[in-house]
Amino acid sequence: MSYAVKNLIQGSKELIAFRISDQEFCVNIMSVREIRGWTQATPLPHAPAYVLGVINLRGAVLPIVDLSARLGMKDAEPTARHVIIVAQMKTKVVGLLVEAVSDILTITDENIQPVPEVSSDLERQYARGILAIDKRMICMIELDALFPDTESEVA
C-alpha cells in the first residue's frame, strides 16, 4: 500500500511548516504550488500595508503578501534569505513572504489541538488548530480565512 493511499485511509494530511520571526505556522500542502526565493517586488499604489507588491512569476503577475504583517506581527524586512510560498486560493494565486520553510509534517486529525480561547480576533480568524510536534508549537492557519475573496475587501 502506497504512502499516499495509507494517509488517505487514516485521514491524515500533509502540511508545510514555516517560520515567521520566532513563531511557527503551517498550511495545507495541497494549497501550495511552489516555493521560491525572494525577489524585489513592484509596489502597488493604494494597496494595504501587508501587500508588498507584485512580481513576475514566469509571466504571471503575482501579488506578494507579507504574512507577518497580515498576521498582525511586525512588518517583514525581506532579505535574499526570505522565501515566497506560492499558494493557490480559489481561483487566485498569491505569494506569501515568510522567513523560512522549516518542515513538512504528516499529521492526523488527532494531532490537532483546538485553538485556546484568546482575546484577539485576528488569531481566531485565521488559526484553525495547534500542533505540538517535538516540543514545538505550530499554529495551523487557514489561508482562505486570511484572504476572503482575496483582498477585494481592502481595495
Partner: peptide
C-alpha cells in the same frame, strides 16, 4: 498582463506588464 487575475483592481492602474529586466511594471 492582468492584475485582476491574481489580485484586484488597483485605482489609477490599468494593468501590468513585464519589462526587459524581468520585473513587473
Amino acid at each position: 498582463k492582468s492584475l485582476e487575475a491574481n489580485y484586484t483592481h488597483v485605482p489609477g492602474i490599468a494593468a501590468a506588464t513585464i519589462l526587459g529586466d524581468g520585473r513587473v511594471a
